[in-house]
């Protein structure tokens, strides 16, 4: 294996550039559920997040049974499915983003919709659309190794996760099997914001173990990060941080407050309600939240 440069395992040139060795500020990866709150918003949000400091976009592919997710992402997923989001639609969205941007895009989602689409077909089409990698939380190292091989053969990365209760030996194995980066889950549990103190207390010991055992890949830390201070604190000793639920919650809250997608909670397709009384200002407010996450201003 060629490891003469720091992160030569990474297949995606866009991801690799993101983690260039001379970089000093933490990499910020932002998760959003594709097609939430409406289909029309996703392109704007991705491009706006990039302009306001996002380095990587994790695009959530909704699934009916998101068993590793807390209420925020469950809600966003259900809404997106009702909005009609499919894998094909997500790949079209990525093609659209690629007309404007070269930000690394990682597809994150549960295995079943991908299997249904056809794993080989999915990987081929994703590479073609301009996807850089995958995060599949219910595909741990050891299961369906052909998926990982195929993703790498197509010049993309399969980002694997380590958790606080992962043994040192398994962390090293996950590091070997992962590329792009290793996703370090800072607390055991489902996705979602937690009390800041709870995160910071246990996270130091976890990061010690991560640093000791994950040597081949960049390390990104996620789960429970909800503001700039959290983010800076937990990412001091790793390459960067991931914000998911706190951002999705912010999307929901700002869009709702603005009257955009205000029917989402009654089980109505949100797309029907887009025209009601939205001023569009909610996106500006959301982008200020994103800037603050990254820069603290």
């Amino acid at each position: 294996m060629n490891i003469h440069s720091e992160h030569s395992r990474t297949r995606s040139a866009r991801l690799s550039a993101c983690f260039r060795p001379d970089r000093s500020d933490p990499v910020m990866s932002l998760f959003l559920t594709a097609g939430f709150p409406t289909l029309e918003d996703s392109l704007d949000l991705i491009l706006g997040f990039e302009q306001n400091g996002a380095d990587i976009i994790e695009l959530g592919m909704p699934f009916s049974d998101p068993l590793a997710d807390g209420p925020t992402i469950q809600f966003a997923s259900q809404t997106a499915i009702r909005n009609g989001v499919t894998i094909s639609w997500i790949l079209d969205l990525v093609r659209e983003v690629r007309k404007h941007s070269s930000i690394p895009i990682v597809l994150m989602g549960y295995l079943n919709p991908l299997l249904r689409y056809g794993a080989d077909r999915m990987i081929r089409d994703a590479a073609d659309a301009g996807v850089d990698g995958f995060i599949l939380p219910d595909l741990p190292v050891g299961e369906m190794p052909s998926i990982r091989e195929s993703i790498r053969e197509h010049g993309m990365d399969l980002i694997q996760l380590v958790a606080p209760n992962t043994s040192a030996e398994r962390m090293r194995e996950i590091d070997r099997q992962s590329s792009g980066f290793v996703y370090c889950v800072s607390v055991t549990g489902v996705t979602g914001a937690r009390e800041g103190e709870e995160v910071s207390k246990s996270v130091d010991r976890f990061i010690d173990r991560v640093i000791e055992n994950v040597a081949l890949n960049p390390k990104m830390i996620g789960f429970g990060i909800k503001n700039h201070e959290n983010a800076m604190q937990v990412s001091k000793r790793v390459d960067g941080f991931i914000v998911g639920s706190a951002l999705v919650e912010q999307i929901r809250a700002t869009a709702m407050a603005d009257g955009h997608a205000n029917h989402a909670e009654n089980g109505q397709p949100v797309a029907d309600s887009v025209e009601t009384k939205s001023s569009g200002d909610w996106k500006e407010e959301l982008f200020r939240f994103v800037r603050h996450l990254k820069f603290g201003d």
């Binding site: 068993l67 590793a68 295995l111 939380p137 219910d138 595909l139 741990p140 050891g142 299961e143 369906m144 694997q160 996760l161 380590v162 958790a163 606080p164 209760n165 992962t166 043994s167 398994r170 996950i174 889950v185 055991t188 549990g189």
Partner: peptide, 20 residues
């Protein structure tokens, strides 16, 4: 040994559950 009945079975769970 890996928990497969033919092609079926396996352990498709978040990493947190693997040690358990």
């Amino acid at each position: 040994a890996n928990g497969y009945f033919g092609q079926f079975g396996g352990r498709f769970v978040p990493e947190t559950l693997i040690p358990v």
